[in-house]
């Protein structure tokens, strides 16, 4: 039995959102849920879930939420992580420092950060994985909407506080602007805070990595 390329999923896009434990769990989950729901409304196959092994009940601990979008049925269904993200997003800027956020990214991957600082400044902190990174997108999502702190929606339960009511809506919009992973109109239909999404879509600053100076 040949093994070569047997389990590759060429059309599969992976989104990994990093956040800070407890106070941003919902926002990270909202980003992947909003984008995958938007993709599903466009007739694509999707999956969304939160990392199960991170320690989501500890404040500030780095946590992750994942999304998968494909034009074909998703084959790698029951896994723990996104092994090769196409999009990495950070709900909090400090995650660029000391956390290997770009691990496994595909060539051409995009990093989207909720920050007021310029991409060039953040880039200096990223020590690993930048050779495959094509763009850094910055958006001051905190100025557009607050982070909603809730346990509703934890452990796979329904988030009764509503999808995309907070800062996640803005971050999702910035992702869509930079990557075109879904139509912006599809995203707008899903998120609660449409205003924040619209403003973020305008405001988000997309910078090509080749124009930036690499870390030491």
């Amino acid at each position: 039995m040949t093994k070569e390329n047997l389990f590759e999923e060429p059309g599969l896009k992976q989104i990994t959102v990093w956040a800070r434990g407890v106070y941003e769990n919902k926002e990270a989950r909202d980003v992947v849920v909003a984008i995958t729901e938007a993709a599903a409304s466009e007739g694509r196959f999707v999956q969304a879930w939160e990392n199960y092994v991170d320690l989501p009940d500890r404040i500030y601990v780095p946590v992750r939420a994942y999304g998968k979008i494909s034009d074909q049925e998703i084959k790698s269904k029951y896994v723990y992580e996104n092994e090769a993200p196409d999009i990495v997003a950070l709900t909090e800027e400090t995650l660029v420092k000391g956390v290997n956020i770009l691990e496994g990214i595909k060539p051409g991957a995009v990093l989207v950060v909720n920050t007021r600082r310029p991409a060039g400044y953040l880039f200096k902190f990223i020590k690993q994985g930048t050779e495959n990174l094509s763009k850094i997108v910055t958006v001051d999502a905190n100025s557009l909407a607050k982070s909603i702190i809730t346990l509703s929606g934890a452990e796979g339960a329904t988030d009764a506080s509503g999808i995309g009511k907070g800062m996640g809506a803005a971050l999702a919009a910035a992702i869509v602007k930079a990557t075109g992973i879904v139509q912006f109109e599809s995203l707008l239909k899903i998120v609660g805070n449409k205003n924040a999404a619209k403003k973020a879509f305008e405001m988000a600053d997309v910078v090509e990595v080749k124009t930036l100076v690499r870390a030491g």
Partner: peptide, 10 residues
């Protein structure tokens, strides 16, 4: 060393 919490700091 198995639980370096410095990366939690903002």
């Amino acid at each position: 060393e198995g639980m370096i919490t410095g990366s939690w700091r903002t």
